[in-house]
Design a binder for these strands. Structure first.
Lengths: 131, 131
DNA sequence: AAGTTTACCTATTATAACAGTAGGAAATAA
DNA sequence: TTATTTCCTACTGTTATAATAGGTAAACTT
């Protein structure tokens, strides 16, 4: 299940795209429009800055801004950054321990196929498509 | 992300289908074959009995047994029973609070479409297909 | 009737993630 | 230098996960 990190993160990206006028957009404005606590959003955007999805600028006239054009972000990369992994099961997560039953597991092929569907869905959809 | 409840539950169902000979199958045997703690599996199968996926019988010669034929179970119903919900976001879960931003939410349509894909995938697949 | 096997039932626990809140320091522009 | 805004560290309450522990009840066998 997608947590608030992923959901709010996406909404911040949409908000930044929607209200882009070339200047930095203060988090206060985003928080008000999106009706999310600014304090909590700080955690969200921090990760987005670290992940190079957006850029921040301190001080007056500061705020956040997209780095690329909306059509150059996939929803998948945004969610993956925010959620850590997009795998449906722990066995297939990025940091997965090597499961000893891997070869004889009767459910693994299904999880793999399903993860492929998830991947195709979210990586085949751009931020622009959400505007 | 699918938890051990869903993953182990599915494996128990497969194990019961695979080893079905008309008799009840003791949990001890399932636990050994699946390499999962019997104690933990008790929690899993309890829920499956309550959800009418399987039936249990105490005493010598007891154990668990499928109620229907493998082709009459969908993976979706098994996972939904074990996980509680198969929604990708809290806003769409069965017990969802009524989100005040529902009408203007720009991400909701995507989550709804995605949940449809999840639903189609898992409900269009039977236990038999995993054998 | 006794013993064995098996499900069934009620706790308890350790760990981690989630969803925030709080308070201040540093940077930037007017 | 003052206002604004990001940036940083720490803290907290709640819930879910992934179990473990110990016992009771039922059913079959001898």
């Amino acid at each position: 299940m997608i947590s608030t990190k992923g959901r709010y993160g996406l909404r911040v990206m949409i908000d930044l795209a929607r209200n882009d006028n070339g200047n930095f957009i203060p988090l206060k404005d985003i928080a008000e429009r999106q009706e999310i606590s600014k304090k909590y959003l700080e955690i969200i955007v921090k990760r987005m800055v670290e992940g190079k999805l957006i850029v921040g600028s301190s001080g007056k006239g500061g705020g956040y801004k997209l780095i690329r054009k909306p059509e150059e972000y996939t929803v998948g990369e945004i969610l993956t950054l925010m959620e850590g992994t997009m795998s449906s099961v722990a066995c297939l997560a990025d940091n997965a321990y090597e499961c000893p039953r891997k070869k004889k597991c009767e459910t693994l092929p299904m999880w793999e196929e399903f993860d492929g569907i998830i991947h195709d869905y979210f990586y085949g959809r751009t931020l622009k498509s959400l505007l």
